[in-house]
Nucleic acid binder design. Structure first.
Length: 278
DNA sequence: AATCGTACCTGGCTGC
DNA sequence: TGCAGCCAGGTACGAT
């Protein structure tokens, strides 16, 4: 489901809902959601008594900064967090709730995921950089660690098509299938153009488009295409501003040519065949 | 080493 | 109505 703007919205919602709460117990209904070498009851025991001190985000990963450790959560395609005050707990948990965090005040946070792709992992301590470094995650696009010179260097070093390269989170984190199409449209670059064939001005336009689109989408609370909701149950608004994603057959807002949809490495890919250049 | 296909899952929609 | 087939905001892993 979510890309950087949606994950940021979920994180901000959780920041309002669960900060300062202490984990009393955790019920796990689909064990594969939890990535651990431990037996699940031992894993839960590590978390019991820890307090949520802060919420953070790295790329599309949500971080629960706990008293001692860090809980890392990736929503993948359909993960959601549902918060229930103690006096509004569901009689029966929803069908797709796979993990229930029960707090000492009786409130609960449920991890809900129709496709069960999401993952939750506990990292020792608070220094999470080795974990993300091992995954090869690139810089945060909305921070000053994202630099044009590095970005250009990364593009020049790959003959892959630009879209799959941007999706792999190594040059920059946070783009997924919606925003990569939007960014390439704004920068007027064909999704199949080899990264090392981008001109200097295209590279710069792409760099700037990434920052602009993601910042606007964060501002709008993300995009709700199918089922996305933040943890307060609110939909995003940026879907109204999408120029090409889901718009195949409609006229290009820039030149009027009919937008098309193709498949690039199994992902639906939307673009304008006349103003995005190979 | 880098890049690609496939697996992981369920449900909604389309078309026969 | 029923059902097969395709599609969906992502990543990990094995094959090439």
């Amino acid at each position: 489901m979510p890309e950087l703007p949606e994950v940021e919205a979920v994180k901000r919602g959780l920041n309002q809902l669960v900060l300062g709460k202490t984990i009393k117990d955790i019920q796990i209904y689909w064990p594969r959601i939890i990535t651990t070498d431990l037996a699940l009851d031992q894993w839960v025991a590590l978390l019991q008594g820890q307090r949520i001190e802060a919420m953070d985000r790295r790329g599309k990963y949500i971080l629960f900064i706990l008293s001692q450790d860090t809980l890392v959560s990736h929503l993948r395609m359909e993960g959601k967090y549902l918060f229930y005050p103690a006096n509004q707990l569901p009689i029966n948990k929803e069908k797709h709730t796979h993990v229930r965090f029960i707090f000492t005040d009786g409130n609960e946070l449920h991890y809900h995921d129709v496709r069960k792709f999401g993952r939750i992992q506990l990292l020792d301590g608070h220094d999470v950089s080795p974990y993300f470094q091992a995954k090869g995650l690139g810089p945060e696009p909305l921070s000053n660690e994202f630099q044009l010179a590095d970005f250009r260097w990364g593009l020049a070093g790959s003959s892959r098509s630009i879209k799959p390269l941007l999706l792999d989170q190594s040059l920059v984190v946070g783009l997924g299938n919606i925003y990569v199409d939007e960014v390439l449209f704004l920068a007027q670059i064909h999704p199949l153009k080899p990264a090392n064939q981008l001109t200097e001005s295209e590279s710069k336009a792409l760099f700037e488009a990434i920052g602009r689109i993601l910042a606007q989408a964060v501002e709008a609370g993300g995009s709700t295409i199918r089922t996305y909701r933040n943890s307060l149950g609110e939909a995003g608004k940026f879907q109204q501003d999408l120029k090409v994603y889901g718009q195949a057959g409609r006229p290009c807002p820039r030149c009027g040519t009919e937008l098309v949809k193709i498949r690039v490495q199994q992902r639906g890919t939307h673009y304008c065949p006349s103003c995005q250049h190979l």
